[in-house]
Design a protein around this nucleic acid. Structure first.
Length: 423
DNA sequence: GCGGATCAC
DNA sequence: TATGGTGATCCGC
């Protein structure tokens, strides 16, 4: 858990996990990112969060140092029992497909404006980019990067404002096709879905011509084909751009595949989990399996059970029906807002927007949550659960207003200096 | 139930 | 000049 002596933060450095990032000058790119960010409030907050993660890791390492041989042995036995049980549940009979339209927004924009095809381009704004094409990726320009930094990396970058209605329309066309192959397919986002192809394959005995259709819409279409959802997701990432990867449905093929898999590739293991695992000497899923007894002592049951499933190449073999939503929210970022009257009227506006969205789905809710982010990027949420469900703007505002007033009071005589509000 | 964190897209 | 919005889940109170 060495600190940030290198001069840059692991949370901010270039994420070359994505495709199209091979063979570029990481050091040079990171230097530009850091120089552009340094000293900003955003950077300072990232630094603070990084320290917190480091502390978490230190705490974990202390715990590790206190583990006895005895405890480890007992844990090992437990781990082996669970592994046997999980092994019995292994099902290799399903054919699960994960479809991912790589650089989807950028691909749609290039389809509609062919001049963009030869240029580095990204969809988004100077504040934030949603995605970039492969020309731009060569410069280190990627999703979730602010446009003004991207411009430093690639001065000729063309930034196209997003047209979500258009992406939705394209997505709807594609989803109609999905439904032909699996009426129960699960959309993850506009450009991503899971399908169960098992029944389709039994009926037609052949692979569909699905790829050709996508090619006319979005040139980068990725298919991952595997016996479960976890593996299918990783497989679709395998042959970027524009490819497919089929993982055979045998235990041996699955285990070989998983051995070599870096933990960060697994959905659900993000930056922080990766860093914690790295601190324990774990970077690939084979390490994960080797260290499972230790992990069972350092992580929650939910966490290490998940790790265990991953290390065995197990995942969900049925695609869950789209479930009922559990929350609905709306939030907005703006220039500093410190006047109480302005904060209250913004809060009312947000409540009205939210009420409108809720009306569309005929929803009600019992818990009202207020979200605040100050100019230093520190986030706070304040919630209140009622005995009855509310739906109108007035009802929501009545609660949100009190939560907001409490926070203002709490800070006074200093004003709340906000950059974001949501509820 | 609450609040902070993590994660995915 | 400038670092998003939405939804879900988990952990430790």
């Amino acid at each position: 858990s060495d600190n940030t002596k290198e001069g840059f933060l692991s949370r901010m450095a270039l994420n070359d996990n994505k495709a199209g990032m091979e063979g570029l000058d990481r050091d040079k790119i990171n230097k530009i990112i850091m120089e552009t960010s340094k000293g900003s409030r955003f950077y300072e907050n990232e630094l603070k969060k990084e320290q917190q993660v480091n502390q978490r890791i230190e705490k974990m390492m202390l715990q590790k140092a206190q583990i006895t041989e005895q405890q480890l042995k007992k844990a090992q036995a437990q781990v082996e029992r669970v592994a046997l049980e999980l092994e019995r549940s292994r099902d290799l009979t399903r054919v699960i497909v994960h479809v991912d339209m790589d650089a989807f927004y950028a691909a749609v924009e290039m389809r509609d404006c062919p001049e963009l095809k030869d240029k580095p381009m990204a969809v988004g704004s100077m504040s934030m980019l949603s995605t970039s094409n492969y020309h731009a990726r060569k410069f280190g320009v990627r999703a979730a990067m602010p446009g003004f930094i991207a411009k430093k990396l690639c001065p000729n970058l063309v930034i196209v404002p997003p047209n979500f209605d258009k992406y939705r329309a394209v997505s709807d066309e594609i989803r109609e096709i999905f439904a032909d192959y699996d009426p129960h397919f699960q959309p993850v986002s506009l450009d991503e879905a899971y399908l169960d192809f098992t029944d389709h394959l039994e009926k037609r005995q052949s692979w569909p011509e699905i790829m050709f259709y996508y090619d006319s819409i979005a040139p980068f279409t990725l298919l991952g084909i595997a016996p479960n959802m976890m593996l299918a997701k990783v497989c679709s990432d395998k042959n970027k751009p524009n490819g497919q990867y089929v993982l055979p449905s045998t235990r041996e093929a699955v285990m070989d595949f998983v051995q070599a898999l870096p933990v960060r590739k697994v959905s659900g293991i993000g930056k922080v989990s990766e860093k914690m695992l790295n601190a324990l000497g774990i970077s690939s899923c084979s390490h994960l399996a080797q260290q499972m007894a230790l992990l069972s002592l350092l992580f929650s049951e939910t966490s290490w059970h998940h790790f265990m499933q991953v290390s065995l190449g197990l995942g969900s073999t049925y695609i869950p029906r789209h479930e009922e939503r559990k929350s609905m929210s709306t939030e907005r970022t703006f220039k500093e807002l410190s006047k109480v009257e302005e904060q209250l009227s913004l809060c009312r506006e947000l409540c009205e927007d939210l009420a409108e969205d809720m009306k569309k789905e005929d929803l009600k809710g019992k818990t009202v949550t207020l979200k605040l982010k100050n100019v230093n990027f520190e986030v706070k949420t304040r919630a209140l659960t009622l005995q009855y469900a509310v739906a109108t703007a007035d009802e929501i505002f009545a609660v949100a207003k009190d939560l907001l007033k409490m926070e203002i009071e709490n800070e006074s005589p200093q004003p709340l200096r906000l950059r974001l509000m949501g509820n």
